[in-house]
Design a protein around this nucleic acid. Sequence first.
DNA 1: ACAGAAAGGTGAATGTTACTAACCTGAATG
DNA 2: CATTCAGGTTAGTAACATTCACCTTTCTGT
Lengths: 216, 216
Amino acid sequence: MSAVKNSGKAVKDGKTSGFPPGRIRIADSLRLLLEKKDFGSITTAEIARTAGVTEALIYKYFKDKRDLLYQVLREYLEHYDARFELDVKGIKGALNKLRKVIWSHLNVYATDRVFAKILLVEVRSFPDYYNSEPYMLVKKYSNTLKSIIEEGVSNGEIRDDVSPSIIRQIILGALENICLTAVAFDRVMSPDELSESLCELLFSGIEKNSDADRKT
Amino acid sequence: MSAVKNSGKAVKDGKTSGFPPGRIRIADSLRLLLEKKDFGSITTAEIARTAGVTEALIYKYFKDKRDLLYQVLREYLEHYDARFELDVKGIKGALNKLRKVIWSHLNVYATDRVFAKILLVEVRSFPDYYNSEPYMLVKKYSNTLKSIIEEGVSNGEIRDDVSPSIIRQIILGALENICLTAVAFDRVMSPDELSESLCELLFSGIEKNSDADRKT
DNA sequence: ACAGAAAGGTGAATGTTACTAACCTGAATG
DNA sequence: CATTCAGGTTAGTAACATTCACCTTTCTGT
């Protein structure tokens, strides 16, 4: 009865075409339920009821419950990956690119809580996640980030005495930790202020230095 | 002769605990099993079998399976919290303290993988974790960290134009992200090298600065 | 001394839950 | 016009976490 409303919401820019209605409704239902509950306490019965289909249909389209989660995550990632590509285009300088990426990252997590929740808290405890399709997309994003850092090292913007991988881990760690607390406690976050603070700290460090010649 | 009620908390070897043998064996079993499997795929039957007790006994000492995990985590945290108190004692300067804390943090995660695994991947997906006893201990640790940062701001070691909370989040985020990948992929980590790189970056930033006055 | 409470532990159910096998139905396809 | 096939359903099942009733040993107050 309480079927999910199909149009309007979710990440479905044309990409949804090709999928049968049942599959769409199931994925939509999971997204909807994730707004209020954690994945672990959402039952297949609940998903099916919300979607207005039977439980068995879930297993026609998804290997198991986790596969459903992974595929929903994959759809999100594909959507946002496309956007990230464009984000960095036309920006000059590695630090400027980094700044933009950090802002976008925060902004996406701030706007799309379900996406943030899946990526930050739900999938992490499943060991097979690290072999999954969506994780490969995350890795791709992560590699793009590393390339930007390497570019910065090459042109002298970024220090060369610490490996780009560690720099990337710090950036991502900081980003995700900030978002994690926001997600866990349902706190609002302001991408503008946060990215400002974050970039300041990441770029110049926490040490109080004779650093008066800052402009941006 | 009345039994001496030992209020000591079991950690790892559990020998000094005043807990009944069954409880100790159950907690020990979970710790053992967590070395090879994730919490989600460890069954109560498995825990009981490993402990040499019946499944029902688990529920005499623990509210449910998750409570068992939380209590095991709490024992770890109480153990390490005591050590952490001493760690910072006698160190002068906020940045030096921070350096020490970072090293210890990395070192604990590097040596005690089960502890790291519980804290970094297992509990995060349970919403009630953030109201649990062990989380309060984490918060306490987190507050100590903030105090150190605030001390650094007061005495001019640390910049005062960004809030200590954000600084702390970056430090913890970086720390945990590094450890998370190590845990997820079962990679060894070297606390010495890592803390060196981490501190360098956190203190001085990633920007290549004409910063000739760095201490050797 | 001894009733009885408390502590430590067990064996056998029970209700949920994720997941599966077999079947139905209409519409393309050849 | 037989057949495949996509989309969907009905009716299970095994595994799992959790509970209930019960047993035995140790401690405690009077």
